[in-house]
Design a protein around this nucleic acid. Structure first.
Ligand SMILES: NC(=O)c1ccc[n+]([C@@H]2O[C@H](COP(=O)([O-])OP(=O)(O)OC[C@H]3O[C@@H](n4cnc5c(N)ncnc54)[C@H](O)[C@@H]3O)[C@@H](O)[C@H]2O)c1
Ligand SMILES: NC(=O)c1ccc[n+]([C@@H]2O[C@H](COP(=O)([O-])OP(=O)(O)OC[C@H]3O[C@@H](n4cnc5c(N)ncnc54)[C@H](O)[C@@H]3O)[C@@H](O)[C@H]2O)c1
Lengths: 223, 223
DNA sequence: TACCGCACGTGTTCACGTTCACATGGTGCG
DNA sequence: CGCACCATGTGAACGTGAACACGTGCGGTA
C-alpha cells in the first residue's frame, strides 16, 4: 500500500467534487489535457487554489502542459471513493423523500438508492420508483443485508435526532440531513446538512443590506 | 440612521439562522432567557462562538443572566431582514421544482412562493399548489409586478447559467442554485448553491477513508 | 542535443475565523 | 447598602485556509 497518510483539508475535499464534474464535462468533450487556469475558470475558483488542491492528490500534472483529463479523473475518483457504489437509504418518504427517490441523478453517479423507510405504516409497502417502502424498525436488518453506507434524513425536524440515532445504531456512518434541525452524532460519523431555510435567510441578510443601506456585504460570485 | 456599518463575518451570518431557529423553539417553550452556554448546546457550537457571533449584532445580553429570548429574536430577525417578506420565484417546475412549490415551509417563514416559471410550453398554465406556471420569457414582467427578491434555479444543469443571466437581467439579486453546475453572476448578486451530488461525494470521501485504511479524516460532529 | 517557454508544485505571506481567558458590570442576597 | 456571584463582551493568541510569487522540470524546437 502507498502512503495514504496525506491529510487533505476539508475545504479542499469540498471542492474536489466540483473539479470532478468539470473534468467529466471535459472528458465528454474529448479534451485530453487541461491547465490549472482553464480548470479554475470552469470551477469558479482561482488557478492557485486548483493547483494547491490537486497537489494534495499527488503530482499528477505535467509542467508546461497541464493535467491529463482522463488520468486526473481516475485519480480523483479513486480518492473520493467513487470507484465503488455507496448504497443509500432515504428515511422519510414524504414530499421531499419521494422527489429524491424519483431523481435518477444519484444512482447514475454511484449512489444507488437501496432502500426507503418510513415510520408511517400507511406508507410501508408503497412503491416509489421501483423501491418498496419498508418500516424504519427494519433498518438494522436492511443495513446489514444491503450494506447501506449513507443515510438521508427527510423526515420532519422533530424526528431528525431520533432517526439519526437509529442510523448510527444500524452502523451507518455517513448522514445527510435535510431536516431543519441541529442533530448530534458520534465523532466517528460524518454528518452534512442541507437546510434551505438557512440558505434563504442568508440571502435575505445580504439582500437587506443591499437594498436597505449603504454598506454591501461580501458576495460569493462564481463558484 | 444608526451605525449599521458593522461588518458581520460571513461565517457568522451563516450561523445566525441556526440561532434564530433555536430561539424560536425556546420562545415556543415559553423560556424567557437563555445563556450562551445553553444556546450553544442547542445550536451545536461552542459558547464562545455564540457570544462572539451575537456581539456582532450588539450588546443585547445581560451579564450574569443571559439573553432575553424575545428581544434577541426580534433583533436577530431585524438583522436578517426577516421583518418583511421576500417573494421567491422558482425557475424550472420539474421534479424538484414541484416538490419545493408544494412545500409550505418557505411561505411560513417569510419566503412566499410568488411565481413559478418554466421554459416548457407544456408546463405553462399548469397549476401547482395554487400557483399557475408561467413562461420564463415573462420573467421581467413578473419580477417587476410582484417584486421578486429571490430566484431559485431548479432546471437541468445545462440551463442554469442562462437562467441565472435572465434572473439577473430581471433585477433579481439573490439566487439559490440547485442545479449541479458552476454559474457566474455579477458581484452585486448573491449566489448560494445546494448540490446534493457534491454532498454525497464528500461523505463518500470520508467514508472511504474510514473503511479503507487507517487514518480517519476530520468529521463534523454536531451541526 | 541544447535552449526556451510554459505551467505545475510549493514555500511564504496574508487574512480570516476560532478559541481562550479574563475584565466588566449587572443581579440578587444578606 | 455592600458584597459575592455569574455570564457577557472582547482583546489577544492561535490555527487554518487563501493568495502570491517563483523555482522547477518537461516538452517543443532548431
Ligand atoms: N419538501 C420540500 O421541498 C422540503 C424543502 C426543504 C426542507 N424540507 C424538509 O425535509 C423534511 C421532509 O419534508 P417533507 O415535505 O417531505 O415532509 P413530509 O411530511 O411530506 O414527509 C415526512 C415523512 O417522514 C415520515 N416520518 C415522520 N417521522 C418519522 C420517523 N420518526 N421515522 C421515519 N419516518 C418518519 C413521515 O411519515 C412522512 O412520510 C422536513 O424536515 C422539511 O422541513 C422539505
Ligand atoms: N429532483 C431531485 O430530487 C433533485 C435532487 C438534486 C438535484 N436536482 C437538480 O435539480 C435540477 C432539477 O431537477 P428535476 O429533477 O426537477 O429536473 P426535471 O427535468 O424534472 O425538471 C426540470 C424543469 O426545468 C425546465 N427547464 C429546462 N430548461 C429550462 C430553461 N432554460 N428555463 C426554464 N425552465 C427550464 C424543464 O422544462 C423542467 O420542467 C436538476 O439540475 C437536478 O440535477 C434535483
Amino acid at each position: 500500500m502507498a502512503e495514504r497518510a496525506r491529510r487533505i483539508p476539508e475545504a479542499t475535499v469540498a471542492r474536489l467534487p466540483v473539479y470532478l464534474r468539470c473534468l467529466l464535462e471535459l472528458a465528454e468533450a474529448k479534451i485530453a489535457t487541461i491547465s490549472s487556469e482553464r480548470l479554475a475558470e470552469l470551477a469558479g475558483v482561482n488557478a492557485a487554489k486548483v493547483r494547491k488542491d490537486l497537489s494534495y492528490l499527488g503530482s499528477y500534472g505535467t509542467r508546461g502542459v497541464g493535467y491529463d483529463v482522463e488520468y486526473l479523473l481516475f485519480q480523483m475518483s479513486r480518492e473520493l471513493g467513487l470507484t465503488q457504489d455507496w448504497p443509500v437509504v432515504i428515511v422519510g418518504v414524504g414530499n421531499l423523500g419521494q422527489a429524491l427517490a424519483n431523481y435518477g441523478g444519484f444512482t447514475d453517479r454511484g449512489f444507488p438508492i437501496a432502500a426507503l423507510v418510513d415510520a408511517d405504516r400507511a406508507k410501508v409497502g408503497q412503491k416509489v420508483h421501483g423501491n418498496v417502502v419498508r418500516h424504519i424498525d427494519e433498518l438494522p436488518a436492511i443495513a446489514a443485508e444491503v450494506g447501506i453506507a449513507i443515510g438521508i434524513i427527510a423526515t420532519p425536524a422533530g424526528a431528525a435526532q431520533e432517526v439519526a440515532d437509529r442510523l448510527v445504531a444500524a452502523g451507518i456512518a455517513s448522514i445527510l440531513n435535510f431536516a431543519p434541525a441541529v442533530i448530534a452524532v458520534p465523532p466517528s460519523t460524518s454528518l452534512r446538512k442541507v437546510d434551505l431555510a438557512v440558505e434563504l435567510q442568508i440571502l435575505s441578510f445580504y439582500q437587506q443590506r443591499r437594498s436597505g443601506s449603504i454598506a454591501v456585504g461580501p458576495e460569493r460570485a462564481a463558484n
